[in-house]
């Protein structure tokens, strides 16, 4: 690494002569060691999935959830330094609450991603702080129908347009990924952490841009991709954590929730089967 010994990596507020901020790059290294986290934007919702590496046999199975809810309709999963991830979530919740106090309505996913991108970016500017050691994936469903504003008690005039544009499209599923630099993009499928490379190549195969994948298929794909991504660190135990958020008339009624146990177990069963299939294939090939 060219940065070592040059001194340009010691402070956050100093560029190297070739225009790099080494502290941010080190933060990315922290992310690269974390368990794989992915998000899939399906046509009727978003799935978030996490490979939660078991650090101790003394931890209770299924406890210590890592995917967090922000407001009611968004989820955050991150990879990297766990305490940084928790602070990120805490800030996201504050932003969502503040938005509500201001606008009396839930924060759109894009706005939250923007606010959090700005927040993370600030931690790359000053020598007194270090950047976030996490890359976070934010998934949410923005309400497609017009929700009442907080505290609304009536339904307004029953005749006339009431200031509304007819046929305007609102809401839908959204997915963003925010990196330690503060950089964020909207994605069809996002992956971060140790197994991101194989996860990304699996995500690319799904042709998510076409918008054909349903939420339930998305759940099964997400489980499979986490299992595929885990192949490289097979020696470590892990738990699969999955959450989803659907439209108002979908299975989660616009709320971000844990994927029901039955569905998750079914997805895991299929994921394991798919992996075994792969093994068989390779075995066959070897035999050939």
């Amino acid at each position: 690494m060219t940065s070592i010994g040059t001194g340009y990596d010691l402070s956050n507020s100093v560029f190297s002569p070739d225009g790099r901020n080494f502290q941010v790059e080190y933060a990315v290294k922290a992310v690269e060691n974390g368990g794989t986290a992915i998000g899939i934007r399906c046509k009727d919702g978003v799935v978030l999935a996490l490979e939660k590496l078991i650090t101790s046999k003394l931890l209770k199975h299924g406890a210590n959830k890592r995917i967090a809810t922000v407001d009611r309709n968004m989820g955050v999963v991150s990879s990297g330094l766990l305490p940084d991830g928790r602070h990120f979530v805490s800030r996201a919740r504050d932003e969502a609450a503040e938005w509500r106090r201001f606008y009396k309505a839930p924060i759109p996913t894009s706005a939250l991603a923007n606010r959090m991108g700005s927040y993370v970016q600030v931690y790359t500017l000053y020598s007194s702080v270090r950047p976030f050691g996490v890359t976070s994936i934010v998934g949410g469903w923005d309400p497609e129908s017009e929700l009442p504003v907080d505290g609304q008690v009536g339904s307004g005039p029953s005749v006339g347009a009431g200031g509304k544009t007819e046929g305007a499209q609102h809401g839908g599923p959204f997915l963003y990924m925010i990196e330690p630099s503060g950089l964020y993009w909207g994605y069809y499928g996002a992956a971060t952490g140790k197994g991101r490379q194989s996860a990304k190549s699996e995500l690319e195969k799904l042709d998510l841009a076409a918008g054909n994948l349903t939420l339930e298929e998305g759940v099964k794909e997400a489980a499979r991709i986490i299992y595929v991504a885990h192949e490289d660190s097979k020696d470590k135990d892990f738990e699969l954590e999955m959450t989803w958020v659907s439209s108002l008339d979908g299975p989660t009624k616009g709320r971000h929730e844990e994927v029901p146990k039955e569905l998750r177990e079914e997805a895991e069963r299929l994921a394991k089967k798919a992996l075994e299939g792969d093994d068989d294939e390779t075995d066959d090939k070897m035999e050939e």
Partner: peptide, 12 residues
């Protein structure tokens, strides 16, 4: 309406 919002944030 104020109490409604209070309950909303409590629920979240």
């Amino acid at each position: 309406q104020y109490l409604d919002r209070l309950l909303n944030s409590l629920d979240i």
